[in-house]
Design a protein around this nucleic acid. Structure first.
Length: 410
RNA sequence: GGUGAGAUAGUCAAGUGGCCAACGACGGCAGACUGUAAAUCUGCUCCCUAUGGGUUCAGAGGUUCGACUCCUCUUCUCACCA
């Protein structure tokens, strides 16, 4: 009997470790993580996992949520998450990946951004097991003396080892002294909070390790394990997801857009998204993969399930289902979408001009090309006459598969 | 501070007096095939009711019948020297 229970627990620990490892780029001190999991599963002892967020980016996209999902996984296995809003450090600006010194943020902007963070993260994290903290709360009291003490733990040569700094130094790009302070402060957060584990992106490695070193320097009796998540690829599957590349799925995207965007990714990329963004377990995903491989599952269905899961997470199950219904209506049954932007135009109006005015063609030149290529439809019927004039009446204009407009010609 | 090289469309990158709205690649858009997938094939990719007109090749001047191409100045980038 006893041995059964012990075997079960060992299995649980292995299972937990597998989920923790899922999708990670690198783990430092995995043994420590295993120990923490063991203590939780055997004795119910909880531990802390820290992750810091710069309150500079109010537009969150799915790339940012990869880390949140990993935190949620930890919460399943006994972690209390220390969710840190870097309100103090934001005044400096994280040097990571930046080719130049960053501008300072206004305090009001920081507060506003932090609020929008909170709104979004609890769609993924368990609020019961999450503590939101502002690092100005313990860094401000540090004072000049404390700050000075912090700087004695490292020297300039060591700082310059860091990639970004080294490059910038070589290139003669300016490095502000305050930027040296940034990693120290982030590391100090770990000292203050006595974190057991810290999560971050791969680009954060230097900063994350700083937490380990400082915990040793300050002799708090533990050194945090570090777990790094990879950068999520964007819709194209090649470049990283980012707003400027316009290959992102924003957490604030409308349900229909979100659903459509997920469905437009390639089948290969779908598995990547499953790995990093789905709440399904590894075993469940394996089943899907086998299903697709032996033909019992259609890849589109599997992708749909993912699209629904993701859409539901941010907009609720109902909105996700109606997004799917809407999608089927437009694309499978070739019907019109239910929401079409409306424009009032003065008639009679030249078709190319009408397309431009309805914002579904950027210029009349482009509109003419679209016409010539058979991409334009009026009331679902293809139109190729470049000279067509629209008389008074109501028309549904369409360019390609996705751009619709309702034109009311007076 | 000195010398040299460079700045061309969303990005990379040809073009060194007219054949240039400017080769090509990537990206993007559209069409075919599909599952709004991938792959593939095709067309398009500055603006303008157009077999034509207008504005473009860092900026400002100049030479010339004619300039992305030559000259002058300015701004910025890179390399070498100090």
């Amino acid at each position: 009997m006893r041995t059964e229970v012990i075997k079960d627990k060992i299995k649980m620990i292995q299972e937990a470790l597998r989920e923790i490892r899922r999708g990670t780029a690198e783990i430092i001190d995995e043994a420590r993580i295993e120990k923490l999991l063991k203590a939780y599963i055997e004795k119910g002892e909880t531990f802390t996992v820290k992750a810091g967020f710069d309150p500079t980016a109010p537009d969150l996209h799915l790339g940012h949520t990869v880390l949140l999902h990993k935190l949620a996984t930890f919460q399943k296995y006994g972690a209390n998450v220390q969710f840190i809003i870097g309100d103090f450090t934001a005044q400096i600006g994280d040097p990571t990946g930046k080719s130049e010194t960053r501008k300072k943020l206004l305090p009001e902007a920081i507060v506003k951004n932090a609020e929008s963070y909170k709104e979004q993260v609890f769609k993924i994290l368990d609020p019961e097991k999450t503590t939101v903290l502002f690092n100005a709360d313990w860094i401000n009291p540090l004072g000049a003396a404390g700050m000075l003490e912090l700087t004695t733990t490292h020297n300039v040569a060591r700082m310059l080892e860091r990639d970004d700094f080294e490059k910038r130094y070589k290139n003669g790009t300016s490095i502000s002294i305050s930027e040296f302070i940034y990693p120290l402060l982030q590391g100090y957060d770990s000292v203050h909070l006595k974190s057991d584990i810290e999560l971050g992106g791969t680009d954060q490695k230097f900063n994350l390790l700083m937490g380990r070193h400082l915990q040793r320097a300050y002799e708090i009796g533990k050194e945090q394990a570090v777990l790094m998540m990879p950068i999520l690829e964007g819709l194209d599957g090649i470049q990283k997801m980012s707003k400027s590349l316009n290959n992102y799925i924003g957490v604030a995207d409308a349900p229909n857009d979100m659903f459509g965007k997920v469905l437009s990714i390639s089948d290969d990329l779908m598995w990547r998204y499953y790995e990093l963004l789905s709440a399904l377990s590894l075993d469940e995903i394996e089943v899907l993969k086998f299903g697709v491989a032996d033909g019992t599952q259609h890849p589109k269905k599997v992708k749909e399930a993912l699209a629904i899961e993701i859409t539901a997470r941010f907009h609720g199950e109902e909105a996700a289902q109606s997004a799917k219904a809407e999608f089927d209506k437009v694309h499978a049954k070739n019907q019109l979408p239910s929401d079409i932007a409306e424009f009032e135009l003065e008639g009679p109006i030249w078709i190319a001009k009408a397309l431009q005015d309805c914002k579904i063609a950027p210029s009349t030149s482009q509109a003419r090309r679209d016409l010539k290529q058979g991409a334009v439809k009026i009331d679902q019927k293809k139109v190729t006459d470049e000279q067509l004039q629209l008389e008074a009446g109501e028309y549904i204009l369409q360019v390609g598969k996705r751009k619709f407009a309702r034109a009311k010609v007076k």
